[in-house]
Design a protein around this nucleic acid. Structure first.
Lengths: 353, 353
DNA sequence: TGCGCTATCCAAAGCGGTTTGAAAATGATT
DNA sequence: AATCATTTTCAAACCGCTTTGGATAGCGCA
């Protein structure tokens, strides 16, 4: 059943039916009701393809997922983010189109998505330092919102991000207040912008107490269980092993925990761990009592917000670049406690400074 | 730059240009080259929306993700599956459209996707026992492939699935051969079809050795870390605690491990764990040496295969229902070992039977 | 030279909607 | 009753491509 047929059934012109259905004012209310009723009765759904061609709009938002080497992105965080964004899209009658492409084809994919008119806007994932894609998308001239920020970007652009620096700064302060001095940072890949900011927060907080972050206690890798395990294990065998870990994600945190338990260290007593918790639906950080002390920020919520922001810009491109900085919550769990006694002398010595 | 403009530039009709670009034979080779060159020079990309309307095809595949209550699906497995499927789609010039919808709107979403012509086919996720969606999609008359199977489905349909029954049967036999008798099953939600099959495999393998599966050692819940932890902890405090666990996923396996370690049980010595490993990219089961002994089957590969199957059916609907059963590999890791000595008498007694 | 074939190209009709510009119907006003 | 403004409806153009049904030209062969 299409518009023309429906119009014929009703003895009306397609024009009128179209207008009645789309809520235009220039149609008699009684006619509109008749049309609406008939549409419902015949289960009429306007053809998306036709609407898209006629209006010149795609009613779709694109997400590009680079494959291969930099597979950091096809991670659980991403799944929750698009779940959040997807909610917003369906609520607004938009489709979400995902392009999974080889790394080297990413730029071309953005160009095509625009020039073929497949989408009205895009979300940019996993920005890195000096990310070239921002200039690219700006150049292409398609509305976009970045999930995260890109240190070094010259142009203004729209983004939704967590205050990663502040989150890790606060987490570090929390550990320092507990008396920890040998604090390790198990970070994500440091070409990722969020990882850079987290490190800055960590280093700054240390510096504020007159402590230098020990490079031997800073690792940077993909946020998998295994890499967390390996980083922690390597640090724990050192002479002056860390008493606390700051970890980039729940998953790598589990690897860190494994390494600690393997050495017989009890969490919250012998060693402390703070993770960043993206509040993933299938990877809850405990329920009533959090497993890990954590800096928490829902990535799903970030997805929702980014999508809303983008739809706003698509609807009115004149809005210009918008930003939204989300603060992470510091959740106290069972994985942190005072620095173990054996470090007490070091602690008091340092505390003087 | 559109077709008409390009044609004008070349002094040709749109018809000829279209044909030249699409490889039709009724165009002079030299003309075709001229057209191709001009198209490249002007970065011409045919408008997707127009192609779709003109051909009546969507060149897109839909994946519907139910939200809310049954959020089992927006899990890491799903992320890897769509990554695999997405690869296939891009390779074939198809888009992937994801619909994130509230549970109760799921059926209507399928209907709309079809009647509005947004997609040419769909992938059905997370089938349950007697899943009504199979009848629905059959009724709607759109090509679809199920990721998994639905016990009790009356009609034939296309699917790609892992042999879950066999995988868990073999895993159980492996544990039995190691002398374990008190084996626990930490399963996924048992309204999910895969969970039912896994339980069957477990129960059957036990029965084949004359052992009854103890209901107190079978749990069924979402596959999160926390639920794995809780299930295992509850079982470990029982009088006749299990010496081995069969766990539905890597993530819940990590919860089980936590519960074991909490009780001071060493993996592979005091207690054994076998998990099902979906071979997720960011959740590798170790690298050279697997952490867990596991039944492994790449869900990403399943995504690729399902997508290929679906595109095949879309291209030629006459093909009819197709099936693909993948066998899981049994990977021996460090989490399994002979049943602990204290059970030796039980073991020898049982071994006689 | 003329006819039939094939190779090559084109005009025009869709695809199923939206939207513009105008016509018809209605109501208000004088 | 005639006129004008407003509602309400419609015919037709358009979105950018594909595809059908010719038309034209070039060629081989009688």
């Amino acid at each position: 059943m299409n518009l023309k047929e429906l119009a014929q059934q009703l003895g009306l012109s397609p024009t009128t039916v179209s207008r009645a259905l789309n809520g235009y004012p220039e149609v008699n209310e009684s006619t509109r009701e008749r049309v609406m009723a008939a549409a419902k009765r015949h289960h009429y759904r306007p053809n998306t393809r036709a609407i898209r061609l006629a209006t010149g709009r795609a009613f779709a938002i694109g997400h590009v997922i680079p494959l291969a080497t930099r597979h950091e992105i096809m991670n659980p965080i991403f799944a929750d983010f698009i779940a959040g964004a997807g909610e917003t899209y369906s609520k607004n009658g938009y489709d979400m189109v995902l392009s999974v492409v080889a790394d080297e084809a990413e730029h071309q994919t953005y160009r095509d998505l625009k020039s073929r008119g497949t989408v009205d806007g895009m979300i940019l994932h996993a920005p890195q330092m000096d990310d070239a894609r921002i200039a690219l998308l700006t150049d292409i001239g398609i509305p976009f919102v970045v999930h995260g920020r890109a240190t070094g970007a010259a142009l203004p652009y729209s983004w939704v991000d967590v205050n990663n620096r502040r989150a890790f700064q606060r987490a570090t302060e929390f550990l320092l207040d507990l008396g920890h001095r040998r604090i390790a940072l198990v970070n994500g890949l440091e070409n990722m912008d969020f990882a850079i900011r987290r490190r800055t927060g960590f280093v700054d907080a240390m510096a504020a107490r007159g402590l230098a972050a020990d490079p031997a206690l800073m690792s940077s890798d993909e946020m998998t269980e295994v890499s967390g395990y390996r980083a922690a294990r390597a640090m724990l065998v050192q002479d002056d092993a860390p008493t606390a870990f700051l970890v980039a994600s729940m998953i790598s945190g589990m690897g860190v925990r494994r390494a600690c338990e393997e050495r017989g260290l009890a969490l919250g007593r012998d060693v402390s761990i703070i993770i960043h918790d993206d509040d993933l639906s299938y990877m809850k950080n405990g329920e009533d009592v959090p497993i890990f002390t954590a800096t928490r920020s829902s990535v799903r919520e970030a997805g929702r917000l980014a999508a809303e922001m983008l739809l706003g810009i698509v609807a009115d491109p004149a809005l210009g670049p918008q930003q939204r900085l989300l603060e992470a919550e510091l959740i106290i769990g069972q994985s942190t406690g005072p620095a173990p006694a054996r470090h007490a002398p070091v602690l008091s010595a340092t505390a003087k400074g």
